[in-house]
Design a protein around this nucleic acid. Structure first.
Lengths: 236, 236
DNA sequence: CGTGTCCTTGAGTGGCTTCAATCAGTGTGG
DNA sequence: CCACACTGATTGAAGCCACTCAAGGACACG
């Protein structure tokens, strides 16, 4: 048996909550963790279920959705690599979690994680800050859903996706307006996130393209051609 | 000097975060706390400011709002008696806090509160759970803003206000459909919370009234006449 | 009794939705 | 290799809900 540690080689080791776990605790963490993979569109956790685990996202994008009895749906949050998926201190899941892309999770026991929060002040602090950030993000999105026009909403989403890759922005890329984004969301997903219909999303994307702000090479690919104009459109 | 303790006689002692503070710590808390009053409409804390205190709400209703440069506004949260007002671990306030009614706060130093969270596991646990509840509440509202019709939105708000007083519901009241609510919000506030215009709010209230679901005795007073119908209208 | 604020009501418009048809891309089977 | 079906996206035409603009009403205040 090699002395291999999944945590040591983890892609999100430094960004996830585990980053605050001291090395000597990692072995313990390893024992209680296991990985899971999901295909795009598959339900990770249905609202109302009682999962016995929480998870970190290793890779992929997870949609959190709320649904009305008549079928109307709203995406209430998106989770990316290194984000935490779970609702500590509550038995039943408040939303449905669904894989938007191929998703890889690192799962660990609920109780174990809740004890970790109690015991490890570093993890706890990180968890609290992330939860507070989640409140802010949700409220920012309330502003979008309550106030903004369809055009502003779509522009906001594009910019949001672009900014997630800000680390990868190189000066020449920005200068030459060659910021290319692979959308992790289908038109339906975008519509459900933005509080619009897919037809409206499609039309607004076209408008942005004809205005020369973006370019839609393929369905899932958007290139930002005029960053300044895009930033002006989101108004906020 | 009498041995009077403001905390001991505090109206929200049991419901606020302080409820988890052991008695021997209360004296310390008292020393660092002071009360403030605000008139309706006055700004408690503007977005971007750097307050040196957090607060519990003793009485009244506080609106949390986000604004766009062009003046559009969205209420992203409402705080009631016993709720916590503040954003620990972040210097600048992410939203504007405004008094919707007369508001009385119990303020204490930022640092002091953050130390309290670290030291007192009871307070900390309560704070975490409330923050998680805030995420849920914001996301529920995202669903309203993204999916629901004007009629459903107004019905949801009325029901929300009614349920806040559920403790005061007596069987005879419910039976006789005499649930009377004093709205802490103006029409403008309601509109900004629901992502509508005041005219639309006004019209929907009228529709609910003519349908016999509610009765609007005065501008700020609503009586629920048909609770079952109201619950049916919110659809979720 | 006038004045200002908040709310209501009406008429008309516009932006997003709805409905429907077409197109593009992908996989399947003959 | 092509015909076919199927899914996801686009585009067009028509309709509706909420918005905008405007006027009038209710109520509190000096």
């Amino acid at each position: 048996m090699l002395n291999w540690s999944p945590c040591r080689d983890c892609a999100v080791r430094d960004d996830a909550l585990c980053g605050a776990v001291p090395l000597e605790e990692l072995t313990q963490l390893n024992r209680n963790a296991h990985r899971k993979r999901y295909r795009p569109g598959s339900v990770i956790l249905a609202s109302g279920e009682r999962p016995d685990w929480h998870a970190n996202i290793i890779s992929g994008v997870v949609k959190l959705t709320l649904a009305l009895p008549d079928g109307r749906q709203q995406i209430v949050g998106l989770l990316f690599a290194a984000d935490f998926l779970g609702r500590p201190f509550k038995d039943i899941a408040p939303y449905t979690a669904e894989a938007a892309t191929v998703v890889e999770l690192c799962c660990f026991g609920r109780r174990h994680f809740e004890q970790l929060i109690e015991a490890q002040s570093g993890v706890r602090r990180l968890f609290i800050e992330r939860t507070l950030d989640a409140v802010d993000a949700a409220r920012d999105w309330m502003m979008l859903l309550g106030c903004k026009s369809a055009e502003e909403r779509v522009a906001t989403l594009i910019l949001l996706m672009a900014r997630r890759r800000r680390a990868e922005w190189c000066e020449p890329c920005v200068q030459r307006q060659m910021l290319t984004i692979d959308l992790p969301l289908s038109r339906t997903d975008m519509a459900e996130y933005l509080g619009l219909r897919i037809e409206t999303v499609s039309r607004q994307l076209r408008r942005l393209a004809t205005a020369g702000v973006i370019e839609t090479s393929s369905r899932r690919t958007v290139t930002v051609r005029n960053l300044a104009a895009l930033e002006r459109m989101v108004s906020g």
